[in-house]
C-alpha cells in the first residue's frame, strides 16, 4: 500500500490584487510506497518547492489531494495541522534551520518537547540515533560552534526522532561541501535501508542518483520518472544526466 498519494495536484499563486496568476503546479500525480526513497528533480521554477510545501501541509493546494497514510491533508483542521506535521513528518532543509538559541541536543528534542513527551523517553530515543548519526560528541554544543555537515546531521536527527512516516528533504545537500554531501547521502541510504520512507527535492544529480526512484518535474507536471531497477549508483547517475540533457534540449523522453 502506498504511504503517500498525490492526485491531480494544482497550485495557482495569485498576486495581491488578483491581477496576475502563476501556475506553479499544473497537474501532479504520483504515489510513494512505504520504504521508498524518491528524489524529485527539476530546474528552478519547475514547482519543486511548491510541491514540497503542499506535501508538508505548509500550504493548501488550489485543486487535487494529498493523502498521507490515508489522511487528506487539505481536510485536516487548521489547529491539527501543526501537530500532524510534528508527529508524522520529518524535515531536512537546505539551510539546516537549527535554532541558534538551543544546543544541538535541545534542537533535536524540540519536536518531542512540543509533543509533550517526558524527558526520559526523549533521551532514550536520542541516544541510539545520535550514535548512528555520529553526533554524540556534539550534543552539548551550539549550532554556531559546529560545521555545516554536522549541522545537517543534527537536523536529520531532529527530523527522525519523532519516527515520522515520511522524511521530507528540501535540497539537503545544497549548502554542503562534497565530503559532507557524500556522508549525508550515505546516511540517507542507510536510514532508507532500515525502512524510512524519504522524499527528497533536489537538483543535484549526485543526490538523486542514490534514490530508488527519480521523478522529473517540468512546467508543473510530472514529466518523467526513472526506476533504479538493478542499476548501480553510477548507472543511475548516467541515466539521470541523460534525461536532464533531453529535458534541457526540449526533446521527448522515450
Amino acid at each position: 500500500m502506498s504511504i503517500l498519494e498525490v492526485r491531480d495536484l494544482k497550485k495557482i499563486y495569485t498576486s495581491r490584487f488578483g491581477t496576475q496568476k502563476v501556475e506553479a503546479l499544473r497537474r501532479v500525480t504520483f504515489s510513494v510506497e512505504r520504504g521508498e526513497y524518491v528524489a524529485v528533480m527539476g530546474e528552478s521554477g519547475s514547482g519543486k518547492t511548491t510541491l514540497l510545501n503542499l506535501l508538508a501541509a505548509l500550504d493548501k493546494p488550489t485543486a487535487g489531494t494529498v493523502y498521507l497514510d490515508g489522511i487528506d491533508l487539505a481536510r485536516l483542521p487548521e489547529k491539527d495541522v501543526a501537530a500532524f506535521r510534528r508527529d508524522q513528518l520529518g524535515f531536512v532543509f537546505q539551510e539546516f534551520n537549527l535554532l541558534d538559541t538551543f544546543t544541538v541536543e535541545d534542537n533535536i528534542y524540540l519536536p518531542l518537547v512540543l509533543a509533550g513527551r517526558p524527558h526520559g523517553e526523549m533521551a532514550a530515543r536520542l541516544e541510539p540515533l545520535a550514535r548512528e548519526l555520529g553526533i554524540s560528541e556534539l550534543l552539548k554544543k551550539y549550532p554556531y560552534e559546529i560545521s555545516g555537515g554536522q549541522k545537517q546531521r543534527a537536523a536529520v536527527a531532529r527530523a527522525l526522532i519523532t519516527e515520522p512516516k515520511l522524511l521530507l528533504a528540501d535540497e539537503p545537500t545544497g549548502a554542503l561541501d562534497s565530503r559532507s554531501t557524500d556522508e549525508l547521502l550515505s546516511l540517507f541510504a542507510e536510514v532508507n535501508r532500515r525502512g524510512q520512507t524519504i522524499v527528497m527535492v533536489t537538483h543535484s544529480v549526485k543526490a538523486a542518483s542514490r534514490a530508488s526512484r527519480v521523478l522529473f518535474i517540468r512546467d508543473g507536471e510530472v514529466y518523467h520518472q526513472l526506476y533504479r531497477g538493478g542499476d548501480t549508483n553510477e548507472q543511475l547517475y548516467q541515466k539521470i544526466s541523460d534525461t536532464l540533457t533531453v529535458l534541457a534540449t526540449g526533446g521527448d523522453v522515450a
Binding site: A56, K79, A82, R85, R86, N97, L99, L114, R158
Partner: peptide, 11 residues
C-alpha cells in the same frame, strides 16, 4: 523555523 518544525501559530 519553529513553524516548520511543527509549532502552531498560536503556540
Amino acid at each position: 523555523i519553529m513553524q516548520k518544525v511543527g509549532m502552531t501559530k498560536r503556540e
